[in-house]
Design a protein around this nucleic acid. Structure first.
Length: 749
DNA sequence: GCGTGTCAGCTTTTT
DNA sequence: GCTGACACGC
């Protein structure tokens, strides 16, 4: 069904392009994925390249998998030799082969953001930087920014807006970098930087890969950063068959170092480039496209483009403003539910600016029994127990990994507490390790003596600590060594089970006999299942490969909720590249969207607006914008003003609905008078009740029978006074629940 | 050394 | 409203 003849002339030109650089400027919904897939298929079918000579780069694993499967279904042949990968996974793969060329061993570990944070905390502690003065997160963000933009390390010294002296920051940077090296670890940013360094330093490597990849394609090119740009330059140096696809209006990752100039200057980089503009939108109605266009038009510094659709007319945009976020959530529930009621396989998306917004919406959907799926922000792999398990695996693979060692040396408790750790750290560094270059150290049989692992060894062999501490450390060393041996013999999933078992982790949780512990056990079982799945899918499953995969899993690669749910929740960032018949964009309030962090910064406001454009153009037929007149932030209610983006949508395209519970002064059209358009009450729905800030809490006694909207009728087991509220434990049919009297919406039963 | 409880700080967006 | 850091008691 899908074939070249199904493409429009521009799409076809792009798909049939073979040699030389190609820039595809693809407006929202213009079918760019189809074009890339068709082009790959075309190159293969016409014999221009074998699968292993093609490289396609995306930003998420999900996008990569989808691309591979679409090529697969088009070509029919086995496409496993195709390189379809994220930037980071590509770099990890290259470095696993070539790491020694830049002074790392092949068994380096990847530090994800949690590892980075742990390492930075350690660094700040070592340098005696008061973390009140410089939060570890802030330091990391500054360093990451420097790496992503490849600014010189010395430029950190000139950070004027910094609460700490610039030279301090340089010191922190240096120590952090050194600590990564000593741990034989690379952080996310390093994966890119070190790969660029690899290509810069090794002619052999550069020749090998730039010869190999005859054709390279990069999706979402407007969101590439400097190291990614350089990496692509290296990879395409030989054949120059680079095809990039993107849309400057959809650049939304500047905060991560993305530089839209990469796409804007493509024709300067490649004067001989063919340029194709995809301007027909196949996705949205005219109504939606008009609204989105009107918003993005407000941005300064942009090249206007003519995006058009033949889906004339369409339903008007709906804007609902509730009294608070609970009303907003209730409205969203009713609206999206209609999609479920229609049957078929249509999906509605609920988009928000910040992950924190999902909670209220989830609650509302759950209360109504509407199944939903949440994309990103799920953090299965950030759960404590999963991270602990991962830390064991990382340590087995690379004993130099201090962050992982620190994490699990006393989990479960085995008598190595703070006291022992302090003494261990204070062990003098062995003599020769000081001036030996890291390369030699890392390649030597013995790990560098600076690592905690080495110190454990030294403390045990030399009996440098108390008998008790020595015994505990010896047991730990033997455990890790034997697990390491075992992991070499056993399959991946068996190895993980054994690690959990022999470390005492499972036993410890089992003995707890709490619901929480059971949940953790379930999560660990899920990790083992993930390993089993990995074994079946990968041609050569290895522990290192599995750990890499987990480290490089992006947020949007993770999902939770019912698999077949037809309501999807995600951030607007996560929605990039997707489309839905119905899209709800929530939280259209000043300070939330556009986010307050962008306030007063025109460039950042432009980026928020592009994000709004991305979100709006996800909609095929219906677009609903929602907000609330007040919203709880950190538990406190705050009044909000409607988002400026609402003003930017022509009022004749919008049906406005206001909650009947909004009081006069909260109404948007009574104040400045700037907001036009008629408001009407939402038809066919009952006004909501919600509690006021100053509402007193109804007294509840132990033994009272109460009714809860979700859990039904129950008995109050305990009452505990809090400031302004009561904490209740109530036994329902489904079990005991802890509730706050103020929010639980209990009625006497 | 370990487990529990309290309090503060926190939230953009993500590879 | 949740998480992590620290303080306290055993």
């Amino acid at each position: 069904m899908d074939s070249l003849s199904s493409l429009n002339p521009q799409q076809r030109t792009a798909a049939e392009h073979v040699n030389g650089p190609l820039l595809i400027l693809a407006g929202a919904g213009s079918g760019k994925t189809r074009v890339i897939v068709q082009r790959i298929a075309h190159l293969l079918a016409e014999g221009h390249a074998r699968p292993e000579e093609l490289l396609a780069v995306t930003f998420t694993n999900k996008a990569a998998e989808e691309m591979r499967s679409r090529v697969q279904s088009l070509v029919g042949d086995d496409c496993s030799a195709l390189w379809v990968s994220t930037f980071h996974a590509l770099c990890a793969r290259l470095l696993r082969r070539e790491a020694p060329a830049i002074g790392f061993t092949r068994d380096f570990v990847i530090y994800d953001s949690a590892d980075q944070l742990a390492l930075m905390k350690q660094v700040l502690r070592e340098l005696h930087v008061d973390d009140g003065l410089l939060q570890p997160r802030a330091a990391l963000s500054r360093i990451s920014n420097a790496k992503n933009t490849m600014e010189a390390r010395s430029s950190l010294a000139e950070s004027a807006a910094w609460s700490l002296r610039g030279e301090e920051l340089v010191k922190i940077y240096d120590r952090y970098t050194a600590a990564l090296r000593e741990a034989n670890a690379l952080d996310f940013d390093d994966l890119l930087l070190k790969t660029v360094e690899l290509f810069d330093t090794s002619d052999a490597v550069r020749t090998r890969y730039s010869s190999r990849f005859r054709f390279v394609m990069v999706d979402e090119y407007q969101d590439t950063n400097r190291p990614q740009y350089l990496l692509i330059q290296h990879l395409t140096a030989r054949h120059r068959n680079l095809c990039v696809v993107g849309d400057p209006d959809q650049s939304i990752y500047k905060w991560r170092g993305a530089d839209v100039r990469n796409i804007l200057d493509f024709e300067r980089d490649y004067p001989d480039a063919a340029v194709v503009q995809l301007e027909q939108n196949y996705r949205s109605t005219q109504m939606i496209l008009d609204a989105a266009t009107a918003v993005i038009r407000q941005n300064r510094h942009r090249t206007p483009k003519r995006l058009w659709t033949d889906r004339k007319g369409g339903a008007r945009i709906v804007h609902f403003r509730g009294a608070d976020e609970l009303e907003e959530a209730a409205f969203i529930t009713r609206t999206t539910r209609s999609v479920v009621a229609e049957g078929g396989d249509a999906v509605a998306a609920v988009l928000y600016r910040t992950n924190a917004q999902s909670r209220v919406i989830e609650d509302a959907l759950m209360r109504e029994g509407v199944p939903y799926r949440i994309v990103g922000g799920v953090r299965f792999y950030e759960r404590k127990e999963v991270r602990d398990a991962l830390a064991y695996l990382k340590l087995i693979l690379n004993p130099l990994d201090d962050v992982s060692l620190r994490r699990i040396i006393n989990v479960p408790a085995r008598g190595v507490g703070k006291g022992v750790m302090d003494q261990l750290e204070r062990l003098p560094v062995e003599h020769d390790s000081h001036d030996t270059p890291l390369l030699a150290d890392a390649l030597a049989d013995e790990p560098p003596a600076t690592s905690l692992w080495a110190k454990v060894g030294r403390a045990v062999d030399g009996r440098l600590l108390t008998t008790r501490a020595t015994a505990a450390l010896r047991a730990f060393r033997e455990l890790i060594e034997s697990l390491g041996e075992m992991a070499k013999r056993e399959s991946l999933s068996v190895a993980i089970s054994r690690v959990l078992d022999q470390s005492g982790y499972i036993t410890d949780l089992r003995e707890e006999r709490s619901e929480e512990a059971q949940g953790r056990l379930d999560n660990l079982m899920e990790l083992v299942s993930a390993a089993r799945e990995f074994e079946m899918r990968e041609p050569e499953p290895s522990l290192a490969g599995f750990v890499d995969r987990l480290s490089l899993l992006s947020d949007v690669d993770e999902e939770a909720g019912s698999r077949d749910a037809r309501i999807w929740l995600m951030t607007m960032h996560a929605a990039k590249g997707l489309e839905f018949p119905l899209v709800v964009i929530s939280g259209l309030e000043e300070g939330l969207f556009p986010h307050s962090r962008a306030n007063g910064d025109d460039a950042e406001l432009d980026e928020e607006r592009r994000l709004c454009y991305v979100a709006m153009t996800r909609a095929r037929s219906r677009l609903v914008l929602t907000g609330a007149a007040r919203r709880r932030v950190f538990g406190e209610y705050q009044r909000t003003e409607p988002s400026r983006f609402l003003d930017e949508v022509p009022s004749e395209l919008v049906d406005r609905i206001e909650s009947p519970t909004l009081s006069g002064y909260q109404r948007a059209d009574s104040g400045s008078g700037s907001r036009k358009g008629r408001y009407r009450s939402e038809p066919e729905h009952v006004p909501f009740s919600y509690e006021d800030e100053d509402q007193s809490v109804t007294p509840v006694r132990i033994g009272a029978r109460v009714r809860h909207p979700t859990f039904g009728v129950g008995t109050v087991l305990s009452v505990e006074p809090l400031t302004d509220d009561l904490k209740l434990v109530v036994r329902f049919g489904v079990g005991a629940k802890t509730l706050r009297a103020k929010y639980a919406k209990l009625e006497p039963a």
